Simulated scan of single mutants.
Amino acid sequence: MILTFGLILSMGYEVLKITSLGSRSLLHIASAIMFMNLNIGIYASYFKKIKRSIIYYLAAAIFIPLLLFLTSSLKAELSLSIIEFAAVCISWLLISPYIGETIKHRVSLIIYLCIVVGNAETDLWQTEKWILIIFDILPVIYYFILLLILIERFITMFQSVVNSSLLDGLTGLYNRKAISTRIKQCVEKGECAIVFTDIDNFKELNDTLGHHAGDAALKTVAEILQEETDDIGFPGRYGGEELIAVIDDKDTISRIEEWAENFRSRVERESNVTLSIGFSIYRYGLTPEKLLEQADLSMYSAKRTGKNKIVEYKDGLDTGSI
């Protein structure tokens, strides 16, 4: 809302400037208000709440010079120039460091200061045409930089929304919905292996060392799984302490037990937990749900027959035998 208002003001300011409908004082006021709204709007696109200090300082930047002007201590144009300069200083100190695009934003502030200087009526600007041309170009550069900042911010926000719908918040792995979609795609392709893993004694770890220790262990295992599936599969968190890898690389599928053992041993060496692992390889006629169920049964078989081991699904391995 603030950003939209700022953009409308900026367009109005440029219309006044081009058509020469407004006095110089009116242009200064419009420029200052436009500048403040745009910069507060940019800040608001990064934070839901605007710091009160920013509002207070901007209010002081407006009212102190105006008060001096009303008491005849300063000339009108000088008062308004102080407002613009103070607004730039406040934006430099209180907005730029916090928006993620500090360098671009500060470059835009410097350009805006140059625009303020260029708006002053002096003989120099009127006699030197090349300087006038530069000052005519500066607003275009200023708005272009602000546009870049906003586009990059909106792209980041869009990516965040997309990632939140696909990724698990704790581990950064793909979530259950994304994993289910990937399994269906692999089954349609005809080349797929599912490796289902469960962290051994995870409840005891949470109960004895606390949930932060459990979360740390889960993140460590997730990082190793992500590294091990790079370019060969799709790592995910299926739920709780259960992680899953959907492997679609033909060469890796042919030696899937070796791959699973390498993953298991890495976790044992590099963390304070062990894994029970089960896997199932796609065979013609299997549905995605059945393939996943087979890997799940294999994992529970590993868990109930000693833990810290790998079990391959074979015909006859069912709930009864587990």
Rank of each mutant, 00 (worst) to 15 (best):
R237P: 06
F5P: 06
K129S: 13
T208E: 13
R237S: 04
K290Y: 00
L78E: 08
M36S: 14
A86T: 04
N175S: 07
V88T: 02
S73M: 14
I183N: 01
I133K: 10
V162H: 08
Q226D: 07
A222T: 02
S31A: 15
L21S: 12
D168C: 03
I133C: 00
L74G: 09
A213I: 12
L243Y: 11
I244Y: 06
T220Q: 15
L291A: 02
I133A: 04
M157N: 14
S72I: 05
S254F: 08
I194S: 10
T19G: 01
L80E: 09
L7M: 11
A60G: 01
I33H: 11
L148V: 15
H212E: 15
K189L: 00
F135C: 10
K203P: 08
S265P: 05
D200Q: 00
I141N: 09
S73T: 14
W130S: 14
I18K: 13
L68D: 01
E242W: 10
Y142M: 01
S280H: 09
D315A: 07
S53L: 06
L292Y: 11
D200K: 05
E261G: 03
R153Y: 02
R237L: 05
F85R: 08
L146R: 08
G285N: 03
G239W: 07
K189D: 10
A260S: 12
F5W: 04
Y174Q: 02
L167Q: 07
D230Y: 15
E77H: 06
A295E: 02
E289S: 08
L3H: 09
I322M: 05
D198E: 04
I62G: 06
Q126P: 11
G320R: 14
T171I: 12
V140W: 12
Y13V: 05
L132H: 04
L27R: 01
S276F: 06
K309P: 00
T220A: 15
W92A: 06
A60V: 02
F154A: 13
R52D: 09
Y57W: 05
A222Y: 12
T156M: 13
R153D: 06
I149D: 01
G22C: 06
I183M: 06
V195G: 02
L291I: 07
E152S: 11
I322H: 05
A216I: 07
S72E: 15
S79L: 00
C89M: 14
S180F: 12
N39W: 12
E84Q: 13
Y57T: 04
I232D: 02
R304D: 15
L166H: 08
T229Y: 03
L26R: 07
S160D: 14
L74P: 01
Y142F: 15
R264N: 05
R264F: 08
L109F: 07
D231G: 03
I179K: 11
F154N: 12
F196V: 03
T4K: 02
L167E: 09
R283F: 08
E77A: 10
I55W: 03
C186Y: 09
P97F: 07
I149L: 05
L275M: 12
Y98N: 03
T156I: 14
T319A: 14
D296Q: 01
T305N: 15
Y174K: 12
L146F: 09
Y57C: 03
H212A: 15
K250M: 06
I179M: 01
G285P: 10
C192I: 09
Y282M: 11
P288C: 10
L124W: 00
I256R: 08
T122F: 06
V88M: 07
R255Q: 13
W125Q: 12
